[in-house]
Simulated scan of single mutants.
Amino acid sequence: MNDRIVLSLISALTMIISVAVQVVSLNASKKDIFLGIRIPESERNSSELKSIGKKYIAANLTIGIPVIVVFSVLIYKIAYLWLFMVLIFAFMFVDFLVYYRYNRMVSKLKNEKKWLKTKRQVVVIDTNFSKENQNKIMPSAWWFSISFLIVAACAIINIINYSKLPYRFPTHWGLDGKPNGYSTKSYINVLIFPLMQLLMTVIMIFSYKSIGWSKKEINPRNPEESKIRSIKFRKIWGIYIIFINYIMQIIFLIEDLQTMQIIKLDTKIILPFIIIAIVVGVTVVSVTISIKVGQGGSKLKVDIENKAQDVDIRDDDRFWKFGNTIYYNKEDPSVFVEKRFGVGWTVNAGSTLGKIFYIVMILILICSVVPLFFVK
């Protein structure tokens, strides 16, 4: 299997996952959210929304599949990393356009039906829940301490084996199992993997902490049930991040030991393992959790007797921009909030920290993508 085939397969797999996430997100959202638009829960199963939902799924498949085939063939034929990145972003933009069209259809329907214009809307605030100790909601952060031990062990092993390395040693291998990238022996180069592991651990801890820091939204129809769902939702995704952290640690550990020539592995075996572990395994687990748990724990079963109130949560669509994908509310002190479409969290672009976060992410993206334009 040559580089062209692998790059083409990775691109196809990435785009297929993107389509799958778009389709799954339709039913993973909360009951009062449909394609990013706040609606009355009682209208969730209305014939109009069902029709829009079916058309949305059909559009994703009829547009997505042909585009995936064309883009994958182009990547195979030309085989440049910059083209790979350009086409992946282009596909994501096409995905967004499909979503945006049906998002606007739901918004138009909502205005025509005057949903949430006449019903009583309530905002529920539970100060105890908001101030509740994160350790009581999330799994213990001590799970990440093992990661630091792994990083320290790798750094010590690399320093001990420093003298055994040749002046130039391989740091990258091709699909044929032969080295195609080398580095000059220096302490910086032999510590590069432990440093990458450390950076990844810090990012994972930040992601874990942001779940606990995120805004805790309570549904006024079932306040107590909503609170329990939210707690379970955060615990499950906290465990997921810890799981992802150790998958990545194992992969980095194997790469580090191979680079330091402590172990010798056939890259024909290792590369498929990495692709399956990162792209397939992690994504499958993520999609499965999204389907079973839902946004905010909306799919979870809760054993509690709680009569639903005849009210709706406040209509906050005005704070959501760009097809209800970006939250912008200067009056909301929360930095992290739950997504309107799909499962997970996003950043409040109206807050100072939110603006800084977006700027940093854009700079990182530019610095990561631009060098690919000079690599075949």
Rank of each mutant, 00 (worst) to 15 (best):
M1I: 06
D3P: 11
R4A: 08
R4K: 12
I5G: 05
S8N: 02
S11P: 06
A12W: 03
S18C: 12
V19M: 06
V23D: 05
S25C: 09
L26H: 15
L26T: 06
S29T: 02
F34I: 02
I37A: 01
I37C: 10
I39Q: 00
I39G: 03
S42L: 07
S42G: 08
S46I: 02
S47D: 11
S47L: 07
E48S: 15
K55F: 14
A59T: 10
V70Y: 10
F71P: 00
K77Q: 13
F84S: 02
F84K: 01
F91K: 02
D95G: 15
L97Q: 05
V98D: 04
Y102V: 01
W115H: 04
K117P: 09
T118P: 08
K119H: 05
M138E: 10
W142H: 13
W142N: 15
S147E: 11
I150V: 11
I150S: 11
A155E: 09
I157C: 03
I159A: 14
Y162H: 10
L165F: 01
F169W: 02
P170C: 03
T171V: 14
G174R: 00
D176Q: 06
G177W: 15
N180L: 03
G181V: 00
T184C: 09
K185P: 01
S186N: 10
S186G: 03
F193Q: 07
Y208N: 09
K216Y: 03
E217T: 08
I218K: 08
N222S: 12
E225F: 15
S226E: 13
K232H: 03
I236V: 13
W237R: 07
I241P: 09
I244H: 14
N245L: 04
F252E: 00
D256K: 11
D256R: 04
I262Q: 08
T267F: 13
K268N: 09
P272K: 01
I274V: 11
I274W: 07
I275F: 13
A277C: 06
V282N: 14
I289H: 10
I291S: 09
D303H: 13
E305F: 15
N306I: 11
D312S: 12
I313E: 13
I313P: 14
Y327Q: 05
E331G: 14
E331L: 15
V337Y: 02
V337I: 10
R340F: 09
G342W: 04
S351E: 05
I356Q: 03
Y358S: 00
L363V: 09
I366C: 07
C367S: 15
V375N: 07
